[in-house]
Simulated assay, not measured.
Amino acid sequence: MPAYDQTLTRVETYFDKTATQTWERLTSDAPVSKVRETVRKGRDEMRATMLDTLGDVRGKRILDAGCGAGQMTHELALRGAEVVAVDISPSLVDIARKRLPDNLHHQVTFGSGDMLSPDLGEFDHVVAMDSLIYYTAPDIGSAVSTLFQRTSGKIVFTVAPRTPFLMTFFTAGKLFPRSDRSPVMIPHAPKRLAGHIDGDLRSVKRVSSGFYISECLEAVQ
């Protein structure tokens, strides 16, 4: 998947070299700007939505694909799941590991690298919050298909929806690229994306909070 690999490299560079401190602050209780506060609120709502979609996770082995600073990992472990928390950014994985309470460490295996690696093993469910938002529809479809080979239950993930607001930013990002710009989100219409998914794709909920706009999708075989 050459396109996937190229995007993965850009995402790794951004989150591990450029934006680590920004994301560390955003995912903490530290004061942030009003704009970032809306992003934090939106991410909290989306995380709760995805957890509700997974349902009872006690005793389940779950891949937190793109775990970032570990908020989803923490919540899954609190609910009794056995979590494999993986992110392309070693710096963010270190933050997630340090933040996790000692009494939950026995339930979590941390790793840095590609969330699609077969070395991660098999899972009951996969959750991927905002970790596929930079990829094309064919790459998302391929990623979901790869994960389905080792997942018996749900794959719950988010995409940037095709709203006028996000399409404006996407178009501007393509017209005026900058070397220091974060990876550009690619908006998707769930109905069109479904044509690239081997399985059933259901739209769960769209969360819109200021500059955070994301749509939760559930894929099952």
Rank of each mutant, 00 (worst) to 15 (best):
T9P: 00
T9Q: 15
E12F: 09
E12M: 07
F15Q: 08
F15S: 06
D16K: 10
K17W: 01
T20S: 13
T20R: 13
Q21Y: 00
W23E: 02
W23S: 00
E24T: 14
R25V: 13
R25M: 08
R25L: 11
R25I: 10
L26N: 04
S28W: 09
S28C: 11
K34S: 15
V35G: 11
V35F: 07
R36M: 15
R36S: 10
R36T: 02
R36D: 15
E37I: 01
T38I: 02
V39E: 14
R40W: 03
K41I: 10
G42V: 06
G42L: 10
G42A: 09
M46P: 01
R47T: 00
A48K: 15
T49V: 15
L51R: 05
T53Q: 14
T53F: 00
L54A: 04
L54S: 03
L54E: 03
L54Y: 02
D56E: 14
G59E: 09
R61H: 12
I62L: 04
I62S: 01
D64H: 07
A65P: 04
A65D: 02
G66W: 05
C67H: 04
G68N: 06
G68S: 09
A69P: 12
G70V: 07
Q71W: 02
M72T: 15
M72Q: 12
E75F: 01
E75I: 00
A77N: 00
R79P: 00
A81H: 01
E82R: 14
V83Q: 05
A85C: 07
V86T: 08
V86A: 01
D87V: 04
I88S: 11
S89R: 02
S89D: 05
P90N: 07
P90F: 06
P90R: 05
L92R: 09
L92Q: 13
V93G: 04
D94F: 00
D94T: 13
I95P: 09
I95Y: 06
I95N: 03
R97D: 11
D102V: 13
D102E: 15
N103Y: 14
H105F: 03
H106K: 14
V108Q: 10
V108P: 10
T109M: 13
S112T: 08
S112I: 02
G113A: 12
G113T: 12
D114G: 11
D114Y: 11
M115T: 06
P118N: 03
D119S: 14
D119G: 13
G121K: 07
E122V: 13
E122P: 00
F123C: 09
D124I: 02
D124F: 03
V126G: 05
V127C: 05
V127T: 05
A128D: 03
A128C: 13
S131Y: 07
L132W: 03
Y134Q: 13
Y134W: 09
Y135I: 04
Y135N: 14
Y135F: 15
